[in-house]
Design a protein around this nucleic acid. Structure first.
Lengths: 99, 99
DNA sequence: TAACAAGATAGTTATATCCGTATTTTCAGG
DNA sequence: CCTGAAAATACGGATATAACTATCTTGTTA
């Protein structure tokens, strides 16, 4: 990676580096959701969710389609789901996270 | 992932989400380096590097062994190197990064 | 033990993130 | 056109990151 790529990659990682945003990615792995479904499922406010979705969208981690008054969110790059496997192992092996 | 796991996972991702720290991981993929080698290779100050290494170390992304007056850094979890492949594709496919 | 080299830490200023409340926009139905 | 539901935006205060300069600590060697 060259300098400029690392800058952008850092931004993408920053976009993922938040509990709610990680939650969104995890939920969307299971399939499309509306904004309301997301903030209810992840137990946060509408405003909060809207802000977090914007960040994920900017980095093209999710995409959004409109249908009437609702918006449906889905993962645009399922490749990053690999990260959850790595992370799962890392939590247990290196940060001795207990189940 | 449960709430608490997401919190910690977010911290790990935050630790990676920085150009210099990504650079460190990339360089260390090639093998052990001293702190001096790292900051020379990545073209930043000694102080800067020391602070960034501390963050990587806290999340157990790297480990450090001491030898006299020098410290040798190495990756403690090569699993995360997968992330660079994902990222490479993401930059090109979704963020239309040019070579 | 003095001097040096490698690295860590302190202190600081600028900037960014987080997240709450309040308000606004957008659109479908009546 | 009015209402209500879904979602976005504005704004602000607290907190966290970033990154620089200067100083301190530690271990080696003469």
């Amino acid at each position: 990676m060259v300098q400029e790529e690392r800058n952008i990659a850092a931004d993408v990682l920053k976009a993922m580096a938040h509990p709610v945003r990680l939650g969104v990615i995890e939920v969307l792995a299971d399939g499309e959701r509306t904004v309301t479904e997301l903030y209810e499922e992840l137990n946060c406010s509408q405003s909060m969710m809207s802000q977090q979705l914007k960040i994920l969208c900017q980095q093209k981690l999710i995409s959004i389609r409109k249908d009437g008054t609702q918006k449906y969110c889905s993962l645009s790059n399922r490749d990053f789901l690999k990260l959850f496997d790595c992370m799962h192992l890392h939590l247990r092996k290196f940060l001795n996270f207990k189940d």
